[in-house]
């Protein structure tokens, strides 16, 4: 059976309808990316999946004994709370030292156990959050804009790490992101959310869907151009006039186009 099945989910926050009539499933081992503009209910949707928010109507059923590894959008640790990396990884379940070491290794930040969480760089912090999620030995890894605050190279490296982790753990991955060109290519399926599911399918399908184009407009020219390169479409139609882009298409995921649109989702909590 599916890991998580969502049927006709609607959520109101106060009087404001945030999500309506959302149907969604994710299978074992699948990588699914949710994209959508600010305030489209992406974070709300994830919070429903992890059980932090009760749906107004509709149903969320999880596979029995489902283990979720959750990487939050951000984690503000009060400066009055002393916390080493090793201690953080032992929350809420106590972990063996060897397991902690292995998880940090898997996440690409070995030997950080004794460091204070407050002293980590942004990239290290996100990887420590990933390591904590991995310690749950998850069936599904849920990431809510996990690369917020990282630069382009940092987030590309982070997603690369996720792909490696997915290969060795075989877990499903569900992530929310606005960095479309990096994320979409690694996904089996993309769901475009804007209060409801606008469209979904393979990255190529969604990138060319009119609903998606209507939502993201010209802002994602870079991402769209990349996909068009991959599939040998003409990019004249996109109005892309950057003469350098023809050189970037051989490494579409490692190199960021200069005009990638980055949305500020700081208020989308």
């Amino acid at each position: 059976m599916s890991l998580i099945t969502v049927t006709n989910l609607s959520v109101r926050l106060g009087a404001v309808p945030v999500l309506s009539g959302v149907d969604f499933t994710i299978e074992r081992g699948e990588i699914v990316t949710i994209v959508g503009p600010n305030g489209s209910g992406k974070s709300t949707f994830l919070r429903c999946l992890i059980g932090a928010l009760a749906p107004s109507t509709g149903q969320i059923s999880r596979a029995p004994g489902l283990r979720i590894g959750y990487v939050p959008q951000k984690l503000a640790i009060d400066p009055t709370l002393p916390l080493t990396v090793g201690r953080f990884l032992s929350l809420p379940r106590r972990r063996q030292g060897a397991d902690v070491e292995a998880a940090l290794d898997q996440a690409g930040v070995p030997h950080l156990e004794a460091r204070q969480m407050a002293d980590l760089s942004g990239g290290q912090f996100q990887r420590v959050l990933l390591a904590r999620a991995l310690l749950e030995n998850p069936d599904i890894l849920i990431l809510d804009e996990a690369t917020q605050g990282l630069d382009q190279a940092g987030s590309a490296a982070f997603y690369h790490q996720i792909e490696m982790v997915r290969r060795s753990f075989g877990c499903a991955v569900l992530m929310v992101s606005h960095e479309l060109h990096v994320v979409m290519a690694a996904s089996d399926r993309v769901v475009c959310l804007n209060g409801h599911v606008c469209c979904q399918g393979t990255p190529e399908l969604v990138a060319s869907a009119p609903e998606y184009r209507a939502l993201f407009g010209t802002g994602t020219k870079g991402a769209l151009a990349l996909y068009r390169h991959e599939h040998n479409h003409s990019h004249e139609a996109e109005g892309c006039t950057d003469p350098s882009h023809t050189h970037t298409h051989t490494h579409p995921h490692a190199q960021a186009p200069a005009h990638t649109h980055r949305q500020d989702e700081g208020q989308n909590v």
């Binding site: 919070r47 059980g51 932090a52 959750y70 640790i77 929350l91 379940r93």
Partner: peptide, 17 residues
């Protein structure tokens, strides 16, 4: 353990059941 996790981040606590 539960109190500490909740203090860090309620969503993190939810995801851990």
């Amino acid at each position: 353990q539960a109190l500490l996790t909740t203090t860090l981040n309620p969503d993190l606590a939810c995801a851990s059941g």
